[in-house]
Nucleic acid binder design. Sequence first.
DNA 1: CGATAAGAGGTATTCTGAATGCATGTTATG
DNA 2: CATAACATGCATTCAGAATACCTCTTATCG
Lengths: 148, 148
Amino acid sequence: MHLTSHTDYALRVLLYLRLREDGKSTIQEIADAYGISKNHLMKVVQRLAGLGYVDASRGRGGGLLLAKLPEEINLGRLVEEMEPHLDLVECFDMKTNTCPIAPVCDLKGVLGEAQQSFLGTLLGYTLADLGTRPQRLRKILKMPKAGG
Amino acid sequence: MHLTSHTDYALRVLLYLRLREDGKSTIQEIADAYGISKNHLMKVVQRLAGLGYVDASRGRGGGLLLAKLPEEINLGRLVEEMEPHLDLVECFDMKTNTCPIAPVCDLKGVLGEAQQSFLGTLLGYTLADLGTRPQRLRKILKMPKAGG
DNA sequence: CGATAAGAGGTATTCTGAATGCATGTTATG
DNA sequence: CATAACATGCATTCAGAATACCTCTTATCG
């Protein structure tokens, strides 16, 4: 039971941008801050841009900005959108299911309800709920000061 | 976001045994009923035996029996025990975490809460809650009649 | 207008872990 | 003692994630 690193990184990028409201951030800068691959992070950012969470500008002086208010970025929706699929077990996908009892099985319903509990909890949070202790976070992330 | 097939199969085995209260079932029989690999299923059954959910007897006339009452088999606990780990994201495992902000990050708490919601929902169910429509299930599974 | 900084996007490779198969051992029973 | 069944370890395959690389486009600055 785990989320992909894409989802993990997406959340980290958004948190970074939220803490750095005062200017653009480059992918390189964020990759360095978290110690992860720039190439990998580019894919994540492209996805976030496509979903309308960030504005990415190219060229010299380009970089990333949040495209929404932190309060408008729901963590549950983000996870739903970033995860490649939410098929907890085989029978969640009718197309590929091989379990013969799937149409009559109660398990699917129970697992589905549990999954909804999971997502439901996340739907109760937005990006604005993260980043308490902003000073410590900015320090750990070696975040440039405003205007830098 | 998905559970391993081990967990999936474990649930299916228990459901099968619950429906077939009247006698022992062999691994081969269950593998055939679901159309899955016997070799694979053996590993799952070993695990279930080790965890005390089933009694497995060897030799001619051997087979599997539930070791507990269906009401005593909690689906949440089972999932916790069958899943190799519950590390939703990297930072859930302090040993291997590389994210520098982990100690100060709110994300971990939020995701942990969501995961608890997931497991909490499953903790509300036992094997006794599954297998409504037993007749249809037994038919689909080609389950031997009592005494067979 | 050209050098450069930055994101876009496709492709290829590596790596991990799950899924599966196979071979042999052990136990019980008829 | 033959056979049916579970036990166990090892090997292999496979899928998908993670990562790297390379080229293209866009924008800005000198």
